[in-house]
């Protein structure tokens, strides 16, 4: 009897460790593979030069890095405020009526829409209207994707602030909107975390960009013009037959992963050892 307990306990431990290994091995092998193949093309030129011609030497991914940063900035400018305020609505205003849960549900639906479909939306609204792929269309597509992520996580962050804080504020005769700001201030770390994770999430998007921002071999030349991005270049160069383009794609993947890991590290730094609402 005792033996059986010991054996099942051991089996359980082994099972969880194996599962952990299965999860970690692909992650580490991806990181290792990308780092070892990408590092050879990373130099100053990689950040400052335009993409090379096929089978040429030199060049860089400067415009793709610039494009990705621009797209992330524009989509954040669109997605963060809208997401933030709809999160405030869900948590602080929608509790006493049925609209809150409706907004919450729509947020979940929006979050579940495949990114390519969001791309089609921005394509229809902006690319077709202006007859050109553009930074604007890319920003709108990625920003739309951010809204539900930010709004639902912000709502959760605000709901984790104890209700006694809300009551204290309202009982002081502080108006509802000021009270909401106070609650946001109490949840600012969790909100910052949610925003950064949303940014990290859309930084790696490719599908909607194919239909919206398009691709360009030149530097940024206006929000109504197409722009290169790391993800699109990884796809475009990675599937090409040219060795130098493939190498560039590895480098672009390495930089992209570095950006996303950097954002996640920042999140860790913000939330280290602190209560979510403090």
């Amino acid at each position: 009897m005792k033996l059986r307990r010991v054996v099942s306990d051991k089996l359980w431990t082994v099972f969880t460790v194996v599962a952990l290994g299965l999860a970690i091995v692909p992650l580490l092998s991806i990181l290792f593979d990308i780092a070892s193949k990408g590092i050879s093309v990373i130099n100053l030129d990689f950040f400052t030069q335009l993409p090379p011609l096929a089978n040429a030497s030199g060049g860089g991914m400067g415009n793709a890095i610039q494009g990705t940063l621009l797209l992330v900035a524009l989509s954040s400018a669109i997605g963060l405020p809208i997401g933030l305020f709809s999160g405030v609505y869900i948590s602080e205003y929608g509790v006493t009526n049925r609209y809150g849960s409706a907004v919450r549900f729509l947020g979940d639906v929006l979050a579940g829409i495949p990114s390519i479909v969001t791309g089609v939306l921005a394509y229809t609204l902006i690319v077709l209207t202006f007859q050109s792929f553009s930074v604007l269309a890319g920003g709108v597509a990625l920003g739309t994707m951010m809204i539900p992520i930010v709004s639902n996580t912000t709502a959760e962050a605000l709901k984790s602030v104890p209700n006694s804080i809300r009551e204290a504020s309202i009982a002081l005769g502080i108006r509802k909107w000021r009270t909401s700001l106070l609650i946001m201030a109490n949840a600012k770390k969790a909100i910052a975390t949610a925003s950064l994770l949303a940014i990290a999430r859309i930084t790696g998007e490719t599908a909607p960009l194919i239909l919206t921002a398009g691709i360009s071999t030149l530097w940024f030349s206006g929000f109504n013009q197409p722009v290169g991005s790391l993800t699109y270049y990884i796809y475009y160069f990675g599937t090409s037959p040219y060795q130098n383009w493939q190498n560039m794609a590895w480098g672009a993947a390495l930089i992209l992963i570095a950006i996303v890991l950097g954002i996640n590290a920042a999140v860790r730094l913000i939330t280290r050892g602190k209560k979510a609402y403090a």
Partner: peptide, 20 residues
């Protein structure tokens, strides 16, 4: 309601200072 609450203050069961 806001003016009422400014004239009629309240202290709660559990002390609830603003933590931030």
């Amino acid at each position: 309601a806001v003016d009422v609450r400014r004239r009629v203050g309240m202290v709660f069961q559990k002390p609830n200072p603003f933590p931030n």
